[in-house]
Design a binder for these strands. Structure first.
Lengths: 188, 188
DNA sequence: CTACGATCGGAGCGCAGGTTCCGGTTCCAG
DNA sequence: CTGGAACCGGAACCTGCGCTCCGATCGTAG
């Protein structure tokens, strides 16, 4: 790959990261190109489709969050850190929140990606959840789907409104615990 | 008003209810018109704007849900019924979920409506929350904004995924309680 | 029944955004 | 240095959708 091509590719990714974070998945490609200091044509040479660019970024985020729990699969509290991190990151990345939340209603072309994303996420989530449940930190009747849905929903609202992502994450965490000590405050 | 005009108005509302429930706020007006068995022009004579039609429907839903708690402002458990009902209705009405969740990022024209909606909702929510907190059913440090955000987020995912709205509502309710009896199952 | 005005329907306008195309430019092998 | 392949940029195209317009139609007062 030519050096200018590589440079532009990185610029595009960086620009898209910012633009999608602020404007969500609905942000126009033109904005990405403009912010990258590049023409739309260049964007489309590197990513065949808007969706492809979006997926590259979302996947990167998810991988980063999942990888952050590497080696902690046995730690009961790692589950809560995972949830907190997810909500926190999504709070400043609208596109991530949207992709996490909407898994029922997406076009044919997005289905494969959603399935892959869900698998990556849920595989790790299942490990962490199992550890947390075994240790009694999380009630036994909660399923991975429950957690996935709750995280998705919380992510969507984490970036707006008067509550911080941390507060919201703490409250749903308590709901999952099956009850913290009475009177415990949500952190934040 | 002429009788055919009234008939069409009702048909449009009914069609919009269904179309928006399935397709969310992004559903095109043409679909509404088609389902109502009417031309687009007719829709626009009754509702000056797509947004106006949408707001009519969302407001109706919110009013219905709020009114359902009339006279129960002192009942500590009414708060939970309110949350449950909200999430449950939004689970089969995408447009309601979208309007509830996205209160940061909306165009100029929607701002007044959002403000009004938030006020109606939060006024009643404040009453019910206060009663629940006074009786000790809900932890004292939770704010109306927390609850509003959590409801909004849960509503968004209530309609998709593997978890029922009731399960999700039960889990966040427990998070708000500050802990149910250990081992309690989320209903549903 | 008739006439008039309210109402209807859907073709069409304007705009926004995803995608394509191609002439000009830039990098690198020879 | 230089030829040509890869790359760049942005004008242009196409589709989808909110909304408007106006001739045709329908309900109702008289």
């Amino acid at each position: 790959m030519r050096s200018d091509a590589l440079r532009n590719r990185l610029r595009i990714l960086e620009a898209a990261e910012t633009v999608f974070a602020e404007g969500g998945t609905a942000a126009p490609i033109d904005d990405v190109a403009a912010r990258a200091g590049v023409g739309v044509g260049t964007v489309y040479r590197h990513f065949p489709t808007k969706r492809a660019l979006l997926e590259a970024i979302v996947r990167h985020h998810v991988d980063e969050i999942v990888d952050a729990t590497d080696g902690a699969e046995g730690d009961p509290e790692a589950f809560f850190r995972f949830v907190e991190r997810m909500v926190s990151v999504a709070g400043s990345h609208r596109e991530l929140a949207e992709e996490l939340a909407l898994f029922g209603e997406c076009g044919e072309e997005a289905l494969a990606f959603k399935a892959d994303l869900t698998e990556r996420l849920d595989r790790r989530l299942a490990c962490l959840l199992a550890a947390a449940q075994t240790s009694g930190a999380v009630r036994a009747d909660v399923t991975v789907e429950d957690v996935h849905a709750l995280i998705g929903g919380t992510c969507v609202v984490a970036g707006s409104g008067g509550s911080s992502p941390e507060r919201l994450a703490a409250i749903i965490a308590d709901g999952l615990r099956g009850g913290p000590p009475r009177g415990a405050a949500p952190t934040g």
